[in-house]
Amino acid sequence: MIDPELLGRLIDRHAPALELYARQWCGSAEDVVQEAFVRLAVLETTPENPVAWLFRVVRNGAVNAGIASRRRKRHEEAAAANGPAWFQPDAGSEFDPDIVQVTLASLPIEQREVIVAHLWGGLSFQEIAELVHTSRSSVHRRYQAGIVTLRELMGVSCPARSNPKDPTNPA
């Protein structure tokens, strides 16, 4: 059984990112995350990497919840897209959270989940590769492609050093 203090720290540290991750597939993200933490609490032995384990459970639960909700109501997907905000309003941020949400939601799910898991979940590309059952290089390609698309959609120019083939780059 997991230590309650460790469980509390995991909730404080990773619950928001896990919820954002689950929201890529379903609208009831908080239920999926809650169930994942409860399942972690009743495990006989704590996983070696609890964070990666949580992301895997949340991903499976969110995918299943998304499929079930689409079967139940076709319009629920649209309702989920117009549902709660993905990010906290932050006046000090350089980006508008609503714009980031809309832009991020427009990405393919393969790119979205990698970006969310890496940027907000803190998972390495290797951990994400194990999570989505693909190679590390494939995960890296998806991530880079998603970031480039986000840049384009948000009107952020790309530096020549990081992506010289970017058409938005004046150089």
Partner: peptide
């Protein structure tokens, strides 16, 4: 992008209680 904080409606106390 990463500096944006994901919104969370997960209730910590409820999770601990259920756990």
């Amino acid at each position: 992008l990463g500096s944006l904080k994901p919104a969370s409606r997960v209730q910590r106390d409820r999770i601990l209680f259920l756990a």
